[in-house]
Nucleic acid binder design. Structure first.
Lengths: 193, 193
DNA sequence: AAAAAATTAAACCAGTCAGTCTAATTTAAA
DNA sequence: TTTAAATTAGACTGACTGGTTTAATTTTTT
């Protein structure tokens, strides 16, 4: 049966709250309030705020990794079209979110990536995992002759996804998907053979 | 003669401290300590922490704008070579900084861009100013036939600089310029005609 | 030199922070 | 059913937060 509260629920609250409000701007009390658990339970599950944030990043990183793998596995278009489909989805997701959150991994990397090695390396680890999934799809595209072989798959993945994060960050302030659409058009024009 | 303390010095301290430590992670007291001024003087110059941060962003944004203008004015290479020279300089600057700060405007956009319209719009304003300087140089390159005309100068500027920020963010966690060098190589290969 | 204005100085405030503590309760094990 | 362990609950702590206040001092103006 288990006890009244469980870790996963708190982690999900943490994900949303950290993603939209940042790390230092959020107090433990806000997490407690929004997840409806008392402080005693929180510190029963997590050693500290930092430990909590690390686990939030970890949970998000892993679930997103699985989701990406499934996405490309289930996609029956050509590799480059699957990549387009992926980023189209990501862009529309950000639009639905009204550009208010961005990506937790990116946000955490900037805000606490250097202050906390624990959180920083956790974020980096998952970013690299995602890159590998993208690189797999890019490799397929290179082999089928859709994507340039001027650069390695991993280099292209790094270039694409870091660039995507760049424009994602921009939308947080411009609140307009136009910049993402331009990025999309240019990127796929550039990497196509 | 003026009084003992002056605004510019405090703003410079604020720039460095905010850039490397973020906004919410830094207390007024830290600014006071590092700039050596007492609280009374601080609140004589600035209405609030938010007002202070806005002025820090403004000062940095404006001085960087001027610096960029001078850079391209003084650069006697071809337009695309001047752009390469610009980003080469930026990359080496970040290397010297040991990848610990990144760009204040980018950091602020992510961390407080949505919580504070004052800081967010100030950051956006200066980012756009910089884009215009870059776009001017890109236009020159397009006219001289060095840079693709498939996209407008401003679109290319936005693409380039947002992408640059994307990899800049990555280096904060990877602490390695390799990713920036790859970005550099790819970007200029893509935009060259 | 006198008066007015601006700046400096730090003690002080209420609120919030991450984290602790103890007691009560619930679940699992014996 | 008894015992042990895990979880829940929230009051509490000391440190720190942004910001105010009041008085002393310095500069500028007259």
């Amino acid at each position: 049966m288990g006890y009244k509260h469980n870790k996963e629920d708190i982690l999900k609250v943490g994900y949303e709250v950290f993603r939209t409000n940042g790390y230092h701007n959020v107090g433990i009390n806000q997490i407690l309030k929004e997840s409806g658990i008392p402080k005693g339970s929180f510190y029963n599950f997590f050693e500290s705020k930092e430990d909590f944030a690390q686990q939030v990043v970890k949970q998000y990183g892993e679930s997103n990794y699985c989701w990406m793998q499934d996405f490309f596995k289930d996609c029956d278009l050509s590799p480059i079209e699957c990549l387009k489909s992926f980023y189209t989805f990501m862009i529309s997701l950000n639009e639905k979110d009204e550009y208010k959150g961005g990506c937790l991994v990116n946000n955490m990397s900037i805000e606490v990536g250097r202050q906390s090695d624990i959180i920083g390396s956790e974020a980096n680890q998952h970013f690299m995992g995602w890159l590998n999934v993208l690189a797999m799809e890019i490799t397929k595209g290179q082999n089928s002759g859709e994507i340039t072989k001027d650069f390695s798959a991993l280099e292209l993945a790094e270039y694409m996804h870091a660039g995507f994060y760049g424009v994602l960050t921009r939308t947080k302030v411009t609140r307009n998907r136009v910049y993402m659409d331009i990025w999309f058009e240019m990127t796929f024009k550039f990497i196509a053979v």
